[in-house]
Measured scan of single mutants.
Amino acid sequence: MAAAAAAGAGPEMVRGQVFDVGPRYTNLSYIGEGAYGMVCSAYDNVNKVRVAIKKISPFEHQTYCQRTLREIKILLRFRHENIIGINDIIRAPTIEQMKDVYIVQDLMETDLYKLLKTQHLSNDHICYFLYQILRGLKYIHSANVLHRDLKPSNLLLNTTCDLKICDFGLARVADPDHDHTGFLTEYVATRWYRAPEIMLNSKGYTKSIDIWSVGCILAEMLSNRPIFPGKHYLDQLNHILGILGSPSQEDLNCIINLKARNYLLSLPHKNKVPWNRLFPNADSKALDLLDKMLTFNPHKRIEVEQALAHPYLEQYYDPSDEPIAEAPFKFDMELDDLPKEKLKELIFEETARFQPGYRS
């Protein structure tokens, strides 16, 4: 834990890192770190609560700039109880001085990944967590956004079992017609939660990839272990087919990539493993919904509104309290091709509203 900075004593240090967030945020305490930044909790002297502050230093890398800009653009436009918001952003007053960006968010005690390492969940908890994931996802999908990296560590939890989806750095506007060349190379989302079509096709992607990830998360809540822990690309596919069985001819016809289709045709026939054999203690309604989410063919996979209306979630289902976005989200430009200098300018502009004396 960093010592509390005395008023006016300059930035606090946390594990050798400068955290320049005073005077409003003090009493910093280390939480963890990701690929390009550290997260601390801090005391907000204005709202009198502890908050989470993520320090991001992305400006050396085009990919990190892209992810940072995506996350900020999306989260500043989203407003939903099951999606983490941005409360404040701290950065230098000029673009030349801006080396880091500090993002202030609600402090959540833990995440689903940490929880599943230590606790076996009751059916009631599984049901409530799944409902909140789908409630947040309904809003995301209504904005025409794909999260693309749903996994237990991106689901934040607090002691009252509130759940918030975080990390929109890989999110995209849904565009089933656009052929994202190089899709697989830039697709760094965790393999275990990846839909089979991501490994088999490169053309376009749809909201059904997020539903697949939610199915993987439900299976993990039922058993405290990942359902498809593939060691590499082909191993991942083999794990999936080992449980779902061989795809039907109709399902194979959806695979545009001939090499991928021929690979699947070359494999020995596998039978589907019954879900109640894998999860003998699970609620039968939970397994019915799991089956509809972990469907090989993305066109037959359940959609988020149908999933919310499934009998497993009937005690929570309330369409009048499951809000959607006001308007579909649009990125003005494809960020993939922009140089990091341009992305830095866009991050600077996007964060201006939090600067003292800002006038829109």
Rank of each mutant, 00 (worst) to 15 (best):
Y139Q: 08
D332C: 01
T160G: 02
L75C: 09
S213N: 11
E186Y: 05
P11V: 09
D179Y: 15
L237Q: 14
D235T: 02
Y128C: 13
N262C: 02
P280C: 07
L289P: 00
Y139F: 14
N253C: 04
F296K: 00
F329I: 15
G34M: 02
A9Y: 04
T118Y: 05
P311F: 10
Y205H: 00
L163E: 01
M333Y: 03
L264W: 01
Y193G: 06
P11F: 01
T159C: 09
H180P: 09
S248E: 07
L218E: 04
L130M: 15
C127I: 15
T181P: 01
P339W: 06
K300D: 08
F354H: 11
M38E: 09
D332V: 14
E33W: 05
L116Q: 14
S122V: 01
S57E: 12
A282Y: 07
L156Q: 14
L343F: 05
V51W: 04
I84S: 12
K73M: 10
D88F: 05
I240C: 10
N87K: 15
G169P: 09
S122W: 04
L252P: 12
N271Y: 14
S223H: 03
L121N: 01
K231E: 10
E334G: 00
Y233G: 05
A42M: 09
D288Y: 14
G245K: 05
S266N: 11
N297P: 07
Q315W: 00
I211T: 07
L116C: 00
E322G: 00
L156H: 05
I95T: 00
S320R: 01
R301T: 07
Q355V: 05
V214Y: 07
M199V: 00
H239D: 11
H141T: 08
D283V: 13
A327P: 10
H180C: 07
Q62H: 15
Y193S: 11
S41G: 11
L237W: 02
G10Y: 09
K270E: 01
Q17Y: 01
S360R: 04
A325Y: 03
I324K: 03
R135N: 01
I255M: 02
V14M: 09
P339R: 11
E71N: 05
Y36T: 15
W275L: 15
D88G: 00
G136V: 14
A9R: 11
A92K: 00
A4V: 12
L163K: 05
D291G: 05
Y113C: 00
P274L: 11
L290V: 10
M38T: 06
A282D: 14
P229F: 05
R191L: 13
P196S: 12
D149R: 07
L244S: 08
P152F: 01
K292T: 10
L265W: 04
N27M: 03
N154F: 10
E303N: 04
Y113V: 10
T63C: 12
L121A: 01
V273M: 12
D291I: 03
K344Q: 00
M199D: 11
L112G: 09
K55V: 09
Y316D: 12
V49H: 04
C161I: 04
H125W: 03
I83P: 01
A174P: 07
Y25I: 10
D44M: 12
T159H: 07
D235P: 07
L335Y: 03
G245W: 06
N297K: 12
D179K: 07
D124E: 14
K164F: 09
K203P: 11
A307C: 01
I95D: 02
N224H: 11
L163T: 02
S320H: 01
R24Q: 07
I255F: 14
G242K: 03
Y193F: 14
R148E: 09
H269Q: 13
M293H: 02
L237D: 05
I324D: 06
H239P: 10
L156W: 03
P356L: 12
Y312C: 00
E350R: 02
Y139G: 09
Q66Y: 12
A260M: 02
E60I: 08
R194V: 10
E33S: 00
L343N: 12
L258H: 08
L146P: 00
L134K: 09
R191Q: 13
T110H: 09
D251W: 08
Y43A: 12
L265F: 10
L338V: 05
N253M: 10
M38A: 14
Q105G: 12
N201T: 10
T68G: 13
I31R: 05
L115H: 04
E60W: 10
L335T: 09
V39G: 00
H180E: 09
P23M: 03
H147K: 08
A7T: 13
D167S: 08
A325R: 05
D177A: 15
L258Y: 11
P196K: 10
I140T: 00
G22K: 02
L218M: 15
N253G: 09
N224L: 07
D283L: 05
I126K: 07
T185G: 10
F296M: 02
E349G: 06
V304L: 09
Q62W: 13
L252W: 10
N154E: 08
L222H: 06
A174G: 09
Y131H: 03
Q306T: 04
S284N: 11
P226H: 14
G85Q: 13
D337M: 03
A309T: 15
I86L: 06
T351Y: 01
P311A: 08
D100A: 14
D167A: 14
R277W: 06
P23G: 03
T110P: 15
L290R: 08
N123E: 08
G85Y: 06
P319G: 12
S142F: 11
R261I: 09
Y64G: 07
N224W: 05
L267R: 00
E345A: 01
G37T: 15
F129P: 09
E334L: 09
R77F: 09
P176D: 07
G169D: 15
S202H: 06
L222A: 09
D106Y: 14
L258S: 03
R225L: 15
A42P: 05
I302R: 11
K164C: 01
W192V: 11
I227T: 03
L218A: 07
R194K: 13
G85A: 13
F296P: 02
Y317L: 07
Q119Y: 06
N253V: 10
C254T: 09
E71G: 13
T295P: 15
H232Q: 12
L294H: 03
T206I: 11
L150C: 03
V18A: 02
R79E: 04
Y64I: 15
N297D: 10
L116Y: 03
I89S: 06
L184D: 12
L116E: 11
L313A: 07
N144Y: 15
N82S: 11
A195V: 13
M38K: 15
Y358C: 11
N253H: 12
E326G: 02
L156N: 04
S57W: 08
V273T: 01
K203R: 11
L343W: 02
I31H: 11
D106T: 01
A4M: 10
I243N: 13
A6Y: 05
F279R: 08
N123I: 14
L218S: 10
P319D: 08
Q17L: 14
N87G: 01
K231L: 11
T185E: 10
Y43P: 04
D100R: 10
A92H: 03
P268T: 14
Y263S: 04
A174E: 11
K55E: 14
N257R: 09
I217K: 11
I243D: 03
I256Q: 00
E33L: 05
A92C: 01
M293P: 04
Y113I: 12
P196T: 15
A42E: 13
E322Y: 02
S142V: 06
I217Y: 08
Y187L: 05
A327M: 04
T68A: 15
P280A: 00
Q132H: 15
D179M: 07
D318R: 01
T181Q: 09
H310I: 08
K99P: 02
I53W: 02
S142W: 03
F59A: 14
K138M: 07
M221C: 10
M221A: 04
P93S: 12
K342L: 06
Y139K: 11
Y312K: 07
Y36C: 15
M98S: 05
L294C: 11
V173R: 09
T160R: 08
I198C: 05
M293R: 10
H80M: 00
G8V: 15
D175F: 10
L287F: 03
A325E: 14
I83M: 00
L267F: 00
L308C: 09
Y193C: 00
G8Y: 04
E341R: 12
Y263M: 03
P226E: 05
K342T: 11
R91P: 05
H141G: 02
I217C: 10
I84F: 15
K55A: 10
L294G: 04
D210Q: 12
P274S: 12
D162N: 13
K270Q: 11
L170D: 06
D318G: 00
E71K: 15
A307L: 07
L146M: 13
Y36A: 14
C254S: 15
E341Q: 11
Y263N: 15
E250P: 03
Y358V: 07
Q66R: 13
L69F: 03
L157M: 13
A286D: 13
D321V: 14
D291R: 03
W192Y: 08
V273K: 02
D283M: 00
L69R: 15
